[in-house]
Design a protein around this nucleic acid. Structure first.
Lengths: 149, 149
DNA sequence: CCTTTAAATATGCATATACATATTACAAGT
DNA sequence: ACTTGTAATATGTATATGCATATTTAAAGG
């Protein structure tokens, strides 16, 4: 008989699809952190880019994209927004042809204000999950981000 | 002394930020499923909407948005794309003012082709994670999607 | 030095996402 | 029936994301 769509399949997908479940989690978590940061005028994605730029010196766009499991072109545009806001500056990297985001004084000042807010949001999340379960989730999320494509 | 940004904080954020980690996972997993479905011309997000529409009859946009932990306005637009492709039809729901997505014959035919592809992608992911760990991840992801905002 | 080539980044196009606000559609009250 | 209020959906604006392709930049080879 032909492979017609079965209700059991549909239920299986709705309950178990890794992409659906992971994206649902990302939506929920992102909304929580974005709401917390809204008074500062940045989103959690931008916050993490600022943090990465400040933590790692001479990290090119391409290498940063690898670290963040993000497409280079996506990162290029996201960094451009931060540059337009004056929070980072794009400089030439030491490796040939590379560009490197460098946090500005304005970006640094914003980061100083943002970190306590991030800490609160993160604390609320770990309280919601339970510390041990969040730790386990962290490990599993890392594995999920490395799924072969 | 003033609360200057500390390298320890930056490291903490890069390694533990739930939003960063969850979004990284969503990016990686989404890329894998999108790549698998590309020959059919749909993305994993659209696939899950088709499945939901087929599984639940008379589910309004608003209720569907709740089920998927998605903003109503986001869902409205995503459904419009599917309607433009002829994969669903928007009909009046039984509840006042509601609209309900209904899968078309064309959408159903596509779904029949897409389900085996989904199954393969899902199998590759569970193989990568390990069955038991994926099961645990599933539970934790559900909790993450319900984090209070 | 000049040309070629390859690596790195940028751009065109498209979907996904969310908040704020506008519109629409219907129920309830008069 | 008419008006009004409210619930549901749609729209304006903005960021995030990725693939395919174009552009740029500098190393390598002549």
């Amino acid at each position: 008989m032909p492979a017609k769509t079965d209700r059991k399949d549909l239920l299986d997908i709705g309950q178990n699809c890794a992409a659906l479940r992971t994206r649902m989690a990302a939506r929920g978590v992102t909304r929580a952190y974005d709401a917390a940061l809204r008074p500062l005028g940045i989103k959690i994605t931008q916050f993490t880019l600022l943090v990465t730029a400040k933590y790692e010196a001479d990290l090119s766009i391409g290498d940063m994209a690898d670290v963040l499991a993000m497409e280079r072109s996506t990162l290029t545009r996201n960094l451009k927004l931060l540059a337009d806001m004056g929070l980072i500056e794009m400089r030439k990297g030491s490796a040939p042809r590379t560009k490197v985001p460098v946090i500005t004084r304005k970006g640094d000042a914003l980061l100083t204000k943002a970190i306590p807010i991030w800490r609160d949001a993160q604390a609320r999340l770990t309280a919601h999950m339970g510390k041990a379960r969040w730790k386990e989730a962290r490990t599993l999320l890392t594995d999920l981000s490395l799924v072969p494509g």
